[in-house]
């Protein structure tokens, strides 16, 4: 059978739908994961014993929770989350049902990425802001986040591509999207061509997200020599 015979209009429609579902799952999950993970990451830095508002007990507890949530493999997390997912979305199938486990898996990961970006901000610059009478909140909003921006964008790129890869894994439990197509057609039905093409689409998506993220980080970074 010719490789291209499989790639008919129906397949293309299926791949386009799969791409749409995958991007939807990825970006919605990434946004919600950032809404939770970004403040969490900032709190981890700020409340650290060497932070601008040290509350070591809180930092320890949050760090512990983050580590626990990051521990289970994503596939296990997906299954463990079934009851919660059903309570939130009313189903455990399709793209919508993949979002809650993706968020729960990604938010602590995002928190750690944000934490490491924020930690890169020079302690001397923070001290200078304190010497000018900046409050902790002003330091967060006007020093930490803006100064860490290029690194935060790189981190968001990393997080988004990781979430996309995870979302493909959700195909195993009928999560929809490209991963689902690859498993159902490619693996269960031995239609290797479909699996290959689907995987290629995922590769392209990851490349595009990765490269645009790096470009955005580069062009917004004012440290570059002009």
């Amino acid at each position: 059978m010719n490789f291209l015979d499989k790639i008919n209009a129906q397949t293309i429609t299926m791949l386009l739908d799969g791409t749409r579902d995958t991007l939807l799952m990825t970006f919605v999950s990434a946004i919600i994961a950032y809404i939770i993970g970004m403040p969490l990451g900032i709190v981890l830095v700020v409340t650290h014993k060497s932070g601008i508002r040290p509350i070591p007990a809180l930092e320890k507890v949050l760090g512990f929770i983050v580590n626990i949530l990051r521990s289970p493999p994503f596939l296990i997390m997906l299954i463990l989350m079934f009851p919660i997912t059903r309570a939130i979305t009313g189903t455990t199938l399709g793209p919508k049902a993949v979002i809650p486990p993706l968020v729960v898996a990604a938010a602590p990961y995002v928190a750690r990425i944000v934490e490491s970006s924020i930690k890169e901000v020079d302690a001397g610059v923070i001290e200078a802001a304190q010497s000018m009478g900046a409050s902790p909140l002003q330091i967060i909003l006007k020093v930490l986040i803006p100064e860490a921006k290029p690194s935060l964008i790189v981190g968001a790129t990393l997080a988004t591509t990781t979430i996309l890869a995870y979302s493909a894994m959700a195909g195993i439990v009928g999560g929809g999207g490209l991963g689902d197509i690859a498993i159902r057609y490619g693996y269960y039905r031995y239609e290797t061509e479909i699996m290959v093409v689907t995987t290629l689409v995922i590769v392209v998506l990851i490349q595009v997200i990765q490269e645009s993220g790096m470009l955005l980080s580069r062009v917004t970074d004012r440290r570059r020599k002009v």
Binding site: G124, V125, E127, A128, K142, D221, R222
Partner: peptide, 28 residues
């Protein structure tokens, strides 16, 4: 705020231009 301070390593905000660095304490 009544005590300006300058440092060996200058400690300017790298993502702000000169004028915005000077505006920083006034924004605060």
């Amino acid at each position: 705020r009544n005590m300006g301070m300058i440092f060996q390593q200058f400690q300017l905000l790298e993502q702000r231009n000169a004028i915005d660095n000077i505006c920083f304490p006034m924004e605060l």
